[in-house]
Every structure is written in C-alpha cells, then in structure tokens.
C-alpha cells in the first residue's frame, strides 16, 4: 500500500466473535489467497464492506461493519455455510453465483430470530436485477437432500399446532394434481395454510 490507513471494527462485535473477524487486503501477499473469493461486484452487493473498496479494488475507508453471518456455540452458521459452499462447489461447479446464494441463505437464517429460512426470504437473497428464484431453489434442494445433512425442510400448519409430514403434503398434492379428487379451492385452502420452512439439521447451530 502506498500510504498508511487505520482499520477499526465494532469493539463489542469483536469481543464476541473474534474468530469471525479477519482483514483481507486485496493483493497483499501477507494474507492468504481465498479459494472462493467473490468478485468486487459481488462484494459490493452482498457484504457490508462494499464501501471499503474503491473502483480499483483498493482499500479506501477506515471502518468496518460486522460480517453478515453470526456465529454461536456448536458448529455455528459460519462453519455450516463453509461446509455447504464446499458441497455445492462439488456438485454445481465453480460458478460464483452458487457461493453468493449459499452465503445469503445462511446469512438470512442467522438473522432470523427462529433461525429458519422462509420462502419469502428468497426475494432478499436474489441479486438485484435477477428475477429467477430457481437458482436459489436449486441450492436449497441440494442442501436439503437427506444425505447432505445441512438443511431440513419442515411443514407447519398455521391453524393447528405441530408439524405436518411430507407424506401428508404429497398425499394432498397427489389428490389435487393427479387424481383430481379434491378441488382447486380445497387445495388452495389447505396448502395456503401450511407454512414451509428450512432449518439447519445441526441443532447446535441454532442461535438462542
């Protein structure tokens, strides 16, 4: 760097999450080169350090905002996010969009008081200008695959306490879509009252 700069972070956040705070200076050989580094454009959109970088990727500011993914005891969302990222890279390839979507999913769950991902959260996960939610759904599909062991899909009835089983949902879907033994209105009334949510399989990762 051509001149000295001072970097600070939120002291309270640093006290609680020392392991999550790192300073990576673009191009500096002192720091390790990340394997899955996001491009500058992606950083600007998806992280709190966007305004730290000028148009040439040089550090320009003297402050730092906390990372989006909180951590707690147990595996922690940061760890799960990294595991998920490696899993997705193996199966979906090295396109950065998967890394961005994955990180946004875990950030969204960590920010939710119940640590769940809801369907409506997909809107906030989508990149500005992107209108296709199916990439997000593809990531959710892979992370929810039983052998992957990262996310679990749950159904909960809005009117009754307790979970609704996948078998019950598929039975109703089949009755409406294939057998036509229930009407459109009956299907909409029932399916509109069942909330679908994804949670981390590792309960230790859940924030209290």
């Amino acid at each position: 760097m051509s001149q000295a700069i001072r970097i600070t972070t939120d002291s309270e956040f640093y006290q609680e999450h020392t392991e999550s705070v790192e300073l990576w200076s673009p191009g500096c050989p002192v720091f390790p080169r990340p394997q899955n580094a996001a491009g500058l454009d992606e950083l600007r959109i998806h992280s709190g350090i966007n305004w730290l970088l000028d148009s040439n990727g040089r550090l320009r500011a003297a402050s730092f905002t906390p990372v989006a993914i909180k951590t707690s005891g147990g595996a922690g969302f940061e760890t799960l996010s990294k595991r998920a990222s490696a899993y997705l890279q193996q199966h979906l390839g090295e396109d950065h969009k998967w890394t961005i979507i994955n990180r946004a999913i875990w950030a969204s769950m960590s920010a939710n008081p119940d640590n769940v991902l809801l369907l409506s959260d997909i809107d906030s996960i989508l990149e500005p200008g992107s209108s296709d939610p199916h990439d997000v759904l593809a990531v959710i599909a892979l992370l929810s695959e039983p052998s992957c062991g990262l996310l679990k899909m749950n159904y909960r009835s809005g009117s009754q306490a307790g979970e609704v089983s996948n078998i019950e949902v598929m039975k109703r879907l089949r009755a409406w879509w294939r057998e036509e033994s229930i009407t459109n209105d009956e299907w909409k009334a029932w399916a509109g009252g069942i909330v679908v949510a994804w949670t981390p399989v590792d309960s230790k990762a859940r924030l209290q």
């Binding site: 809801l118 369907l119 409506s120 939610p133 199916h134 759904l137 159904y155 809005g158 949902v169 879907l173 209105d185 299907w187 909409k188 009334a189 399916a191 509109g192 009252g193 069942i194 909330v195 679908v196 949510a197």
Partner: peptide, 19 residues
Amino acid sequence: MRPQRDSVLALVELMERKA
C-alpha cells in the same frame, strides 16, 4: 385468494412455473 407467501401453495406455484 392470494396465497400466503411462505406456504406450500406458494412453493408449489413456484415449481409449477419452473416446470
């Protein structure tokens, strides 16, 4: 009826739009 945004109905409609 406007489906709840987080419901099974909304998910199924998303899937139906894809294919």
